[in-house]
Amino acid sequence: MQAEAQIKCRNLWKVFGANPKQFLKKHHGNPSAEALNEEGYIGAVQDVSFDVNQGEILIIMGLSGSGKSTLIRCITRLNDPTAGEMEYEGRDLLKLSDRELIDIRRHKMGMVFQNFGLLPHRDVLENVAFPLEVQGVPKADRVERAKQMIELVGLGGRESYFPRELSGGQQQRVGIARSLAVEPDIWFLDEPFSALDPLIRAEMQDEFIRLQTMLKKTIVFITHDFEEATKLADRIGIMKDGRMVQMDTPEQIVLNPADDYVAEFAKNAPHERIVSVRAIMGPVAADAVGSVESTAKIGSCAEQVLTGEHPVAVVDPATHEVVGSIDRHRIATSIFGRRAA
């Protein structure tokens, strides 16, 4: 990725226990799993380093207890990390004063929560206007802005409803509207759709994609749902037991899983939507009929290849040169083969 890093994390640790700083120091900043276990400490985040690039959707994925929620709370400084470095647009996040931190949260960051985190005593409008209210935006302005946001997430007309009067999906729309009200540069979403029904979840994912194409925010998105991750992500980071096991594009993760753990996830992933033709094509074939672009996902050309007798030529969309070919066998193996294995 050519874009510059908006957030940099280096060797982040978050250890829970009696005296975590002391503990890390004793083990020279890198305790073993045994040491953690023996001394009764929990390493929720262990030695994690990564960048979040401008304008990308970075998805952190892992099972519950893998440390992904703790990680996002470290970056937003809802929890302070035990050790490590974090930079936000070149500023050391860990050295900010309370005042500066509040300022960044008021203007740069937005966050959406798994259980919505709506204020039960305020109606939709007041909830969305809340971040503006606490920073002292005049009432007329914040109502105006909040109404725009409510319109944006499709809840126009429900401004005076209270959270308890809304469905889960609607509540999360309010959460989204609230997090966007301050026009943040970076948007954190902590399992935003996990508490929703599958149908609503799919609808909200589409809604999310729609918003992102309009807003183009830098996004850090947490989920435990690999399919959701592959659907939305530019890059995916997979966490296990507090460590970042692999961070890469969805395609790379599916094709080159770093270890068995990642492979297990990748196995059931919908390859047809993730893997591009380029990754599975064979050499240029003479009897090729028709053509597909090399960056196309295999799912999009499967019908064309499977229903034809002959292989199909693969063309680089940039150079318009034929770079290879693809046939029924390769498609079938790619989509179904691994399941038999």
């Binding site: 509040i102 949260r105 966050m111 259980n115 985190g117 709506l118 204020l119 809340f130 606490v134 920073q135």
Partner: peptide, 22 residues
């Protein structure tokens, strides 16, 4: 609920605002 408190914090509440408004 911790979500509500964190939502307040992420909205940029000062400590006093977090107490009285959230």
């Amino acid at each position: 609920s911790s979500d509500v408190l964190e939502a307040g914090q992420m909205s940029g509440c000062t400590k006093r605002q977090a107490l009285w408004k959230v």
